[in-house]
C-alpha cells in the first residue's frame, strides 16, 4: 500500500516545479518579450496617464457618451477587480424590473426615440466588463450623442464605424463596437 508513496512524492514535487513554476515563467518570459502590451492588459495610455483598457468596459450614463452593456458587478458597475454577471434567472421579477428601468433610462435620455431598444443595451453582460455593444445598440444611441454634442450625425456614424470590429477573419464571433475607445475618440474631437 505504501509502495507507491515514494514515487508519488517525488513525481509530485518534480512535476510541480515543471508545470507550476517553469511553465508559467516560460510563458511569461516569452510573452513579455514579444507581446508585452497585450500581456499587460492592452492598457490605453493618454498623455502618460492610464485611462483604461481596450478590453475592459467602463460605465457611462451621461447622454453625451455612448452607453455600454449594463454591468452587475458590485459595489460599482464595471468593477474590474471583481468580475461577475447578474445570475438573474429568466423568470426572476428582479430581472424584468431591471430591464424595464434600463429601457426607461434610455428613453428619458432620448425622448424622441421610439424604436425598440437592442437587447444587449438593457441586459447585463456575463463578465460585467464587456467592452463592446452591438452595432445596433450604437446606432440606437447615435442621434442622441450627436445632438447633445452638437455634432453632425454623419460624422458620429463615421467614428462609430472606425471603432466597429467585424467578425474575426470574416466569420468568427459577432460584429461589435468598442465603447470606451469610441467615447475617448468623441472627447478628443472637442
Amino acid at each position: 500500500m505504501f509502495k507507491e508513496l515514494r514515487p508519488a512524492v517525488i513525481s509530485f514535487v518534480v512535476l510541480s516545479l515543471l508545470t507550476g513554476i517553469a511553465y508559467p515563467l516560460l510563458v511569461t518570459g516569452i510573452s513579455q518579450a514579444t507581446l508585452s502590451d497585450k500581456a499587460h492588459g492592452s492598457l490605453i495610455i493618454n498623455d502618460g496617464k492610464t485611462v483604461g483598457s481596450s478590453l475592459i468596459g467602463q460605465s457611462f450614463s451621461d447622454p453625451k457618451y455612448f452607453w455600454g452593456r449594463p454591468s452587475a458587478t458590485g459595489p460599482v458597475p464595471n468593477n474590474a477587480a471583481a468580475s461577475s454577471g447578474s445570475n438573474l434567472g429568466p423568470t426572476n421579477p428582479a430581472l424584468i424590473d431591471a430591464v424595464k428601468s434600463r429601457v426607461q433610462a434610455l428613453r428619458e435620455a432620448d425622448p424622441g426615440n421610439t424604436t425598440p431598444v437592442p437587447v444587449d443595451l438593457v441586459t447585463a453582460s456575463a463578465s460585467g466588463l464587456d467592452p463592446h455593444i452591438s452595432p445596433a445598440a450604437a446606432e440606437y444611441q447615435l442621434a442622441r450623442v450627436a445632438r447633445v454634442r452638437n455634432l453632425d450625425a454623419t460624422y458620429v456614424r463615421m467614428l462609430v464605424a472606425e471603432h466597429t470590429e467585424a467578425r474575426q477573419f470574416g466569420i468568427l464571433g459577432e460584429p461589435r463596437v468598442n465603447v470606451l475607445e469610441l467615447n475617448l475618440a468623441l472627447d478628443a474631437t472637442h
Partner: peptide, 15 residues
C-alpha cells in the same frame, strides 16, 4: 446583421 439578438442577459457581445 447589426445584433445577435436573443437572450443576451449574462452573455458577452463578442460571442
Amino acid at each position: 446583421a447589426a445584433q445577435s439578438g436573443g437572450n443576451m442577459e449574462g452573455k458577452e457581445t463578442r460571442f
